[in-house]
Design a protein around this nucleic acid. Structure first.
Lengths: 333, 333
DNA sequence: CTGTTAGCGCTTTCAG
DNA sequence: CTGAAAGCGCTAACAG
């Protein structure tokens, strides 16, 4: 058995209270402090977080609910969340929703059962009903990447519409007018990015051709299919905006199957600067999200909420994006 | 406050012991069972896992130590581990070692502090000293993907040497004799795969040319550099075996920068059928690991060890691999 | 600053 | 099968 606070008591002759106080950073006579420290070392004592949790009602653990742990985007976010949390002495319990709202709901309950101090959620959809039980249990929740429809939770994200707007504006500024989009309309970020595309096009006085907007699921498969569709049009777009990582992958694959070249025959603008971008030739222009800040801010905000204890008004932290230039956009007349 | 077992006691008039027994699946008179169930429903009672953990000394949580959560390979493994564990009622606490043995060691202690029931480790290296403290604390450990040098822990993995042997054999069977390898020698799997390459080449009576073996770090950057080196040789290899995912990515990128085509000018054999393979053209031939089985077996074995409680002899589970055929290997004279 | 005394919510003897 | 009582390891009042 591991040593307990009682063993320290025997060893030092001090009371439990004094030792506990020391353990929690309270003031103790230098003499006693030394005794305690010596005993701790000798007995290899370590506090039992479980016992502590039982009385303080805090576990120093936060739950992370990810719609998918298979996506690199989320893996990167998880790393940043984890690093921030670890620095603060918190552990994280990661649950994979497998893109399924039912599993998500199960996971919320699982985490509540584990008495996590808070939850960072990358929700499956903006329909965040499953998180309501957390709210009921007064466990703070911070959403990441995707907000809740009725804005009842804190949220850290980017302005997807604006980011897309800027990306398309970039293409327009390079002389493109026939701009297509391959876009996932099945989830929030894709829909917002599509809005930004439309806005930029309309402002520039470009016609929004229906056949230039390929929309489908958030997947490589659809990216492939959507791009294939655009490429087979009689009047091909001169540039295509791909609204996310998976879609961009599929789209590039589709392009590779043809004899067309980027940027000579078609310009491309992607989203998310992840590992994949290194292997695609030519280097893609793309919208870059501040992944590190997103993870860190989410952790920071959650810890703040946990610390304050009280329910406050939900807030949103909206971070900026930038365009990383590659070699995939040609300037045209 | 949430309802406690005491509230159930008041509600039903039964004793704590009876209720606890019911909660743990013991036999209780039908009449009492109904009373308890009614009270539980009415009070929305849920057992407090923390309190239970304090007395049973089990948390129903396992720690997962991943050398990197950014890699897709690990993301996929994590999903399978998580699913298996969740089904068994276990949660997982994931720690990211960031490829750093020091952080790994810190994480082990963190997990022990959290009193996890067991640990699944994807270790940074085969030097598993950091895990010894877990052993000391009698917390079972199962290694995944990479074994420990002195075989003191259970391990679930593939036979890397054999898998590579088969891959190279495949190339040989297609008439290739000048086969190069781009290989990460900084970690276990890469070294083993290199051994398999050598073995196959030697058995086939092929000369092991030093200049055909580009070895370096486990990274996209090195994949790029290594492949570039092979491609610039006066007498280029006719086929190249890329020993892992990252290296393969970099290598393909290097090929894309040249005017050479696969498989006309050079044949390729990769490793790991992950998302990336869908975007590479032509479709790569590659060695496929049974990711799902690996995650599941690791979870299964760990739960078994947790259940039995006693220290048993370390065992290894070595799973088979197969070659997934694509369009990247040409048959030559 | 230190010690005493109660618990946190649950399981687990041990009688009955 | 059920109940009373003890205790897991720790913190938190409250006196002193």
């Amino acid at each position: 058995m591991a040593a307990t606070i009682r063993d320290i008591k025997e060893q030092t002759g001090l009371s439990l209270a004094t030792i506990s106080k020391y353990l929690n950073g309270g003031n103790v006579l230098p003499e006693n402090r030394m005794k305690i420290e010596a005993a701790i070392k000798e007995l290899h004592y370590e506090v039992n977080e479980i016992a502590r949790g039982l009385v303080t009602n805090r576990t120093r653990t936060v739950g992370v609910l990810a719609y998918s742990v298979e996506s690199i985007f989320n893996g990167t976010l998880l790393r940043h969340i984890g690093n921030s949390l670890r620095k603060a002495g918190y552990g994280l319990m990661i649950c994979d929703s497998c893109d399924d709202p039912k599993i998500e709901a199960e996971n919320v309950n699982f985490l509540l059962g584990k008495k996590v101090d808070g939850i960072i959620a990358l929700p499956v959809s903006t329909e965040t009903d499953s998180l309501k039980s957390a709210k009921k249990a007064k466990v703070p929740v911070v959403l990441l990447d995707r907000p809740s429809r009725d804005a009842e939770f804190d949220c850290v994200r980017i302005d997807n519409c604006r980011a897309a707007y800027q990306a398309v504006k970039f293409l327009l500024d390079n002389g493109h007018k026939r701009i297509g989009i391959v876009c996932s309309r099945t989830e929030y970020t894709g829909r917002e990015r599509c809005k930004g595309y439309r806005k930029a096009m309309e402002e520039a006085g470009c016609v929004l051709r229906k056949e230039y907007c390929a929309s489908g699921t958030h997947s490589i498969e659809f990216g492939f299919e959507g791009m294939s569709r655009l490429l087979s049009l009689k009047e091909r777009p001169t540039a295509v905006f791909m609204t996310n990582y998976e879609v961009a992958l599929g789209a590039v694959m589709a392009l590779n199957k043809t004899n067309l070249h980027c940027p000579e025959d078609i310009s491309l603008m992607g989203f998310d600067d992840l590992i994949m971008s290194h292997v695609i030739h030519p280097r893609l222009h793309m919208v870059v999200q501040p992944m590190k800040e997103m993870g860190e801010k989410a952790a920071e905000l959650l810890l703040e909420r946990i610390g304050s204890g009280q329910q406050e008004m939900a807030m949103e932290i909206v971070l900026g994006t930038r365009i990383s230039e590659g070699d995939s956009v040609a300037e045209i007349g």
